[in-house]
Design a protein around this nucleic acid. Sequence first.
DNA 1: CGGTATTTTGGG
DNA 2: CCAAAATACCGA
Length: 743
Amino acid sequence: MGEYISVIVDLPVKQVNKEFTYHVPEEWQDSVHLGRKVIVPFGNQKKDGYVIAKKDKAEVETKDILEVADDIVYFNQELLQVAQWMAEYYQCYLITAIKAVIPSGDLKIKTKRVVELAQSKSATKQKINELKNRAPKQAEVLRYLVDHKADLITTELANKVDTSSGTIRRLADRGLVIYEKKEVKRDPYQNLDFDESNNLDLTSEQEQALNSIMEAVNNNQSQTFLLKGVTGSGKTEVYLQAIDQVLEQGQGAIVLVPEISLTPQTITRFKGRFQEQVAVLHSQLSSGERFDEWRRIKNGEAKIVIGARSAIFAPLSDLGLIIIDEEHETTYKQDDHPKYHAREVAIYRAGLKQAATVLGTATPSLEAYYRTQNEDYQLLELHNRIDDRPMPEVEVVDMREELNRGNRTMFSELLQEEITTRLEEEEQAIVFLNRRGFSTFVQCRKCGYVMRCEDCDVSLTYHSNPPLLHCHYCDHKEKVPDNCPECGSKYIKYFGVGTQKVEEQLNELFPEANIKRMDVDTTRKKGAYRRILSDFKEHKIDILVGTQMVAKGHDFPNVTLVGVVTADTALNFPDFRSSERTFQLLTQVAGRTGRGDKGGEVVVQSYTPEHYSIQLAKEHDYKSFYEQEIASREATSYPPFSKLINFLVSAEDEDKVIKNAHKLGELVRGKIEILENNEIQVLGPVQAPLSKLQGKFRWQLIIKGQELDLLREISDYAVTELRDMSISENVKVSVDVDPLRML
DNA sequence: CGGTATTTTGGG
DNA sequence: CCAAAATACCGA
């Protein structure tokens, strides 16, 4: 068996998106199998390829493979199936899906040279006596090696016995010691200490949830659970104890968390409970570190994987449980191809292995909660916070009234009062605003001209330190002009509020308070993020101002106030999910307070306080929010009542983009007509909400329908046809199945 | 993608 | 009519 192999060639092109058969010369037939990387002749070039099957005979004339690329087994049957599923579901080439599944970057095993005794200890002891007088240093080195089970590199050993590497070299020449290459694993957390922790007592709700999950695990059912628990209700403890039991059965678990929650705090919690059985995978690791963690998982040293989105592809051999924390987070959707959603991949993979999946969140995505209603998922609820702490009191302030009463600042009277009280009581506050920078746009008061990014067509944000205009989409920076580029007037004014301005104004209002800002700008440096959080925890900071970053997952018992400067920012996005986003964000931010025994309060400022996502977030009423929102989705037949595919057409030439977008629309509509389907809707083509990004113009087209298979057929047809047309050269058409953000 | 075979174009 | 340039095709 196995003279021939099926290979997927590393060339992301439609015509090459299929299996190619190669012959394997005798000498490699044992080592070349599924998941190996080979170098093959392709056309008149050499290409990398991945083996996806072995076969006895070839239906076509074959060539020999040229080489075996390395000795890494990149994937097994299970992960290949995951890749194949992704390629089909998300409409990408198999090679693209495979490359998302396997580790990338510099895959080198790191070694160090260690010195070992060449002979037995007793033989060496004799030599020590012989050498003692003639070469005392050499004798000392040998003595050290006899006494210690040393695993030292040459220079370290030399230092230990206070000599130079020459001494050791001489010993090697005499054949008394040997150098050996020894593999080392790069451990990103080797300098951190983890206090061991044990299982905590569970509340009866936690107990029930755990039991349900374990029942599925024990029966090898690929059940998906939605663990809906308010912030601070102890979801993590349920995860930990479920994993504990999964381990006892000899199985492994994957825990996905949003990148932003992958803080030392989270890792400590898991490492504290399971020590070196935990592998961590995230984007901050070097490719070498990631590769070593990947290998620890693959060879069974680590049975628990905690990581961001792509950790769903961890090569665990016996997967029993997948946990997706903060299930509603949009970071679980990959931005580039394959544009997969980790939740969907997880459920597919769990299905292959009869593993259970737990989706944890305080604010389920509409899709997930909907699936509990038709009993696709099983709902597990934690209604109470640990120690029965009450939910924080939320006050919504109508900023229009504030203005009517003559308050022209960005802080309502209530928020100012509350902050004052906190400072007096020596408690802490978080002030949240979903925009960084100082002012969100810069405008000429005479002609109304707004400063925009030349490459992205979005307004530039003014940052005060240093005073520059930033584009938040392409990172372009420029100086603030003295005169309006349009009319030449010098009446340039800054509008809109960003975190820098909030920080500045708070400093003016509360000069005695220690105020810090946490956003992308202040956490760019390595370790800055952790420092700010630990300073805040130790109360070296009274008020923490920040973006999204302050909203996620942290636990600060002394924070008794959260202020939301404007709740409307997300609400005004042109996206059918804007209400959902707003509700989730407000609930998450509110959850940062009232985690200690002093209770907590939230002040939400808004210009549309009557909006249901704000009102129901105030009431902590997810159920009502869900009912209202799901009704609106049903009325407009948006997901979960339909499926969407979004096409993004982009190019540097605006005319071309428009022409192609319209052509795409024609092709799509034509195909729908041929299919005689009157249910599928075509939205667009229209200019994309971000109409120009990094120098490329963008148009989009959405198709909406019940049957994803039909939508894919249409998409496949239209994209293929368009690509074959000469008008589409230098034009990119990107297909997004189940798009999350329509920007 | 990158080469090679095939077709188109336009200058003299 | 020819050769350069644009285009189509193919890979095991």
